Simulated scan of single mutants.
Amino acid sequence: MEQRKRIHPHKFTLWVGIASIIMMFAGFTSAYIVKRNQPNWVSFDLPKVFWYSTAVMVLSSVTIWQALKAFKQRAMLNYRRLVMVTFFLGVLFVVLQIIGFNELYQKGITLQGNVSFSFLFIIVGLHALHVLGGIIVLLILFLKAFSSSVRNYNTVPIELASTYWHFVDFLWVYLLIFLILIR
Rank of each mutant, 00 (worst) to 15 (best):
A128Y: 01
V156C: 04
P157A: 01
F88W: 14
W41E: 03
F28P: 12
R74N: 12
G27W: 00
V16N: 11
Q106G: 09
L175N: 03
V62K: 03
F121A: 06
L111Q: 00
I18K: 04
W51C: 10
L176H: 05
S43M: 06
Y174N: 08
W51R: 04
W65D: 12
I18L: 13
I21M: 07
L59I: 15
Q73L: 11
I158L: 08
I99T: 09
H10R: 11
P157E: 00
R80L: 03
S53F: 01
F25V: 06
L160I: 09
V168G: 05
N102R: 06
T155G: 08
I7K: 12
S118D: 00
I22C: 11
L68A: 14
S118R: 03
I177C: 15
L14G: 11
R151Q: 08
N40L: 09
A19Y: 01
S53Y: 00
W65V: 13
V137E: 02
M23D: 06
I136M: 15
L181V: 08
I122W: 00
I21V: 15
A75D: 14
V49M: 10
D45T: 14
V94S: 10
L176T: 02
N152E: 10
L143S: 15
G90C: 08
M57V: 15
I109N: 02
L120A: 11
I123K: 01
M24L: 15
M76P: 13
S147T: 01
T155P: 10
T63E: 02
M24I: 06
A145F: 03
N102Q: 07
A67L: 04
V42C: 05
Y174P: 14
I136T: 08
G113K: 00
L104F: 07
S53L: 07
F142M: 12
S118F: 04
L141E: 12
Y52H: 15
S162G: 12
L68T: 10
R4A: 13
F170W: 04
G17C: 10
T110H: 03
I135E: 02
L171A: 05
S61L: 09
I99L: 15
G134N: 02
R81L: 10
K144L: 15
H166N: 07
F178K: 05
V62R: 01
A55N: 12
N114A: 05
W165H: 07
F121K: 02
L160W: 03
M1S: 14
L129S: 06
L46F: 06
F87R: 00
A31P: 11
Q73A: 14
I22F: 10
E103A: 15
F87S: 06
G108I: 01
F44H: 05
R80K: 13
S20I: 08
S53H: 02
S116C: 03
K5L: 11
Q3Y: 09
A26S: 14
F44M: 04
L143Y: 13
F170E: 02
V58I: 15
F71K: 06
I136H: 02
S60W: 00
L104M: 12
M76V: 05
F119H: 12
T155H: 05
R74G: 07
S162C: 13
F88P: 09
H8V: 04
V156M: 05
W165G: 11
L139C: 06
I140D: 06
S149G: 07
M23S: 08
S149A: 09
T13G: 13
N37A: 07
I109H: 03
V94I: 15
G90D: 02
A70W: 01
I21R: 00
R36S: 07
